[in-house]
Simulated assay, not measured.
Amino acid sequence: MSDLRSVSSNPHVRSKTTTSNIMMWVVIALLPATGFGIYNFGLDALIIILLSVASCVLSEFIYEKAMHKPITIGDFSAVVTGLLLGLNLPSTVPFWIPIIGGIFAIILVKQLFGGLGQNFMNPALGGRCFLVISFPAIMTNFVTDTYTGATPLANLKNGVEVNVMDMLIGRTAGTIGETSMLCIAIGAMILFAIDIIDYVIPFTYIITFIIFVGLFGGYGFNWSYISAHLAGGGLMLGAFFMATDYVTCPITTKGRYIYGFILGLLTGIFRIFGANAEGVSYAIIISNLLVPLIEKFTIPRAFGIKRVAKKEAK
């Protein structure tokens, strides 16, 4: 029995890059958006982020301890989930909201399906959508001492003129981490520079969305209008930090293009024709659910395999 080998789940690819390395770089890349969110919304934003991260880490530790499973909080995946969840919350939510969201994201979306690598959707977005459905009034309240009006996307949907430059910088209402397109872009460049993510999914997503908004938005290819859509809401945060999640996106190249196309199409449909001004979270979650089907039809044929004609088979 000494020859028994330990078999792990796929993919079986050896690399010096570890999960904890990748997750730490994602945390570093999120720091510009996090720092600006705290600067923009104040101490409440910091507390919400810390509560979100703490609830995710503690939920993972307690669950794995209770189930007698290896403790995996050292891979920093729970920290990333908590940070992304916190950045997707308004600074006005009660402090129990990130705690409930973190517990749901880690236990129901991640751990009950086998832990890291087995979850069927992005845990942070799963937690956020659960909170939006359960507490819609709380999750859509963006009124603070600094910003008292509706979000730029809500104004855009109602035909109200918005200041695109303020949206690029982040001087707008919204969730903690989505407001500054500039800070999100800086974080994305960090991930591109160290090959944590590639261009296929985010750029296919963004280009598809631009074409859709240009065709169906009612303003043609008005770049001021399109820029406001790109800078507003969680599109950039979703495109670079959540749609590219290794676990819930396709591994085939063709599949990644299809996945990005579906993301852009769904986000456009939700924003232009839906009742809600946002739509990124639901677009990513629905696309996550379609990944097994996408990979089924895009998996490359094994080398050396030839289809046998029916006559030859007989």
Rank of each mutant, 00 (worst) to 15 (best):
residue 2 S to E: 10
residue 3 D to K: 14
residue 8 S to I: 11
residue 9 S to G: 06
residue 13 V to Q: 08
residue 14 R to V: 13
residue 15 S to L: 06
residue 26 V to D: 01
residue 30 L to W: 07
residue 30 L to M: 11
residue 36 F to P: 10
residue 42 G to L: 05
residue 43 L to R: 13
residue 44 D to H: 15
residue 46 L to V: 02
residue 47 I to C: 14
residue 49 I to E: 08
residue 54 A to I: 09
residue 56 C to P: 05
residue 58 L to T: 02
residue 59 S to H: 01
residue 60 E to C: 11
residue 61 F to D: 04
residue 64 E to N: 12
residue 69 K to Y: 02
residue 71 I to Q: 06
residue 75 D to G: 10
residue 77 S to L: 04
residue 78 A to L: 07
residue 79 V to K: 10
residue 79 V to L: 12
residue 82 G to S: 08
residue 82 G to P: 09
residue 83 L to E: 15
residue 85 L to Y: 04
residue 92 T to Y: 06
residue 97 I to W: 04
residue 97 I to P: 00
residue 100 I to F: 09
residue 108 L to Y: 13
residue 108 L to N: 11
residue 109 V to S: 10
residue 109 V to R: 05
residue 111 Q to A: 03
residue 112 L to P: 02
residue 120 F to K: 13
residue 120 F to P: 05
residue 123 P to M: 05
residue 123 P to E: 07
residue 124 A to H: 13
residue 125 L to T: 06
residue 128 R to C: 10
residue 130 F to D: 03
residue 131 L to V: 06
residue 132 V to K: 14
residue 133 I to H: 04
residue 134 S to I: 03
residue 135 F to E: 06
residue 136 P to N: 04
residue 137 A to M: 08
residue 137 A to G: 04
residue 140 T to H: 15
residue 143 V to F: 12
residue 144 T to C: 13
residue 147 Y to T: 11
residue 148 T to W: 03
residue 151 T to P: 06
residue 154 A to I: 15
residue 155 N to V: 02
residue 159 G to T: 07
residue 159 G to S: 06
residue 161 E to W: 00
residue 161 E to M: 09
residue 163 N to M: 02
residue 167 M to P: 07
residue 171 R to T: 11
residue 172 T to F: 04
residue 172 T to A: 11
residue 172 T to S: 11
residue 175 T to Y: 00
residue 179 T to R: 07
residue 179 T to N: 05
residue 181 M to Q: 05
residue 187 G to P: 15
residue 189 M to V: 13
residue 192 F to L: 13
residue 192 F to Q: 08
residue 200 V to I: 15
residue 200 V to N: 12
residue 203 F to I: 11
residue 210 I to P: 11
residue 210 I to T: 09
residue 212 F to E: 01
residue 215 L to E: 09
residue 216 F to G: 03
residue 217 G to E: 02
residue 224 S to T: 14
residue 225 Y to H: 13
residue 226 I to Y: 00
residue 230 L to W: 08
residue 231 A to C: 15
residue 242 M to G: 07
residue 245 D to A: 02
residue 255 G to Y: 00
residue 257 Y to W: 07
residue 261 F to Q: 12
residue 263 L to C: 10
residue 273 F to C: 01
residue 280 V to E: 00
residue 283 A to E: 08
residue 286 I to D: 00
residue 287 S to C: 08
residue 289 L to H: 02
residue 290 L to G: 03
residue 293 L to M: 07
residue 295 E to Q: 00
residue 296 K to N: 01
residue 297 F to R: 00
residue 306 K to S: 14
residue 310 K to M: 11
